[in-house]
């Protein structure tokens, strides 16, 4: 490092870096900030001219409207329920599969691995048509079960790849210690491996929850009654019903994004590490 920090070699690049970051920040965050403040405006103020970021008078009336409407509260309950069940089921099945992949070699292992990687990329629209036929045929149209089963198919491949990636980083001596003591691999998995896999499990859980919370196409097509609609569909319905209740739609969007933001911030460390391990190496 040179002692003398000349303007051209040190100060200027630093300034440019900060300037670039500032532009990036506006690009990334402005739409979100605008959404949050719009949810705190009265509906007449949304398109005020000239546009103002901060509302003249803050009001939480849009939020109160949502909380006082049982139909809208139900959208949230449905989303939490479906995403919660899908996350638990996905984790359980993915942990078993990942353990099999990570600790054993067996025939068809590579075929199965390729199969799971390629299922990641199957277009949902291709599966939607047969799912619709199946769901009607099995009389589970417009039920939670229809959503949970179809979501599992999309969460499972990611979860298996993320968990396998994580388990591969754990030393084999961990389970061998249990096996030498006469324990079964089942014991090794649940008593030793799972407890030390918190980062991988948290990352997988957050990602699974995010995928099911955000799902739109299947929820739109495989459910029909208001009692079973999830948040994304609820927002869509709100848009169709009263096209001009912008503050309410923004409040709904804030509430609909909140669980993901909270989960992300809590699990940030695990999440990024897990995601990159999964997406970059899988």
């Amino acid at each position: 490092m040179a002692r003398k920090r000349s303007f051209k070699n040190s100060v200027l690049p630093t300034l440019l870096t900060y300037a670039g970051l500032a532009v990036g920040l506006v690009f990334a965050a402005f739409p979100i900030v605008w959404m949050v403040f719009s949810s705190l405006k009265s509906n007449t103020e949304i398109f005020a001219l000239p546009p103002r970021l901060l509302p003249d008078d803050f009001t939480i009336s849009a939020y109160l409207t949502i909380f006082n409407d049982p139909t809208k509260v139900r959208f949230f309950i449905n989303s939490y329920f479906v995403a919660g069940v899908v996350t638990v089921l996905t984790l359980f099945i993915a942990i078993l599969t990942a353990y099999g992949f990570s600790r054993y070699s067996f025939r068809f292992k590579n075929t199965l691995n390729i199969f799971i990687i390629s299922t990641q990329t199957v277009p949902p629209i291709t599966l939607l048509i047969p799912y619709f036929g199946m769901v009607v045929a099995f009389r589970i149209f417009d039920t939670y079960l229809a959503l949970i089963l179809t979501y599992l198919v999309f969460t499972l491949p990611y979860a298996v790849l993320l968990m396998t990636g994580y388990l591969n980083t754990l030393p084999k001596e961990l389970d061998e210690a249990v096996l030498v003591d006469g324990g079964s691999s089942w014991t090794a998995l649940w008593r030793v491996i799972v407890p030390v896999s918190t980062p991988g499990i948290v990352a997988t859980a957050v990602y699974t929850f995010l995928l099911s919370w955000n799902e739109f196409l299947f929820a739109l097509t495989l459910t029909k009654s208001m009692d079973l609609r999830t948040v994304p569909i609820g927002i869509q319905l709100l848009m169709g019903q009263h096209a001009f209740e912008w503050n309410e739609m923004m409040a709904m969007s804030v509430l609909g994004s909140l669980p993901l933001l909270v989960l992300y911030l809590v699990a940030q460390r695990y999440f990024l590490a897990g995601m990159t391990a999964g997406s970059v190496k899988s």
């Binding site: 990334a28 979100i32 995010l210 955000n214 994304p232 923004m250 994004s257």
Partner: peptide, 21 residues
Amino acid sequence: VLFILPWLFTAVIIAIIWRLL
């Protein structure tokens, strides 16, 4: 953290944010 934010939003919400903007 802030730069990752757009990624966490549901497509439906992204759609209505941009419809508003």
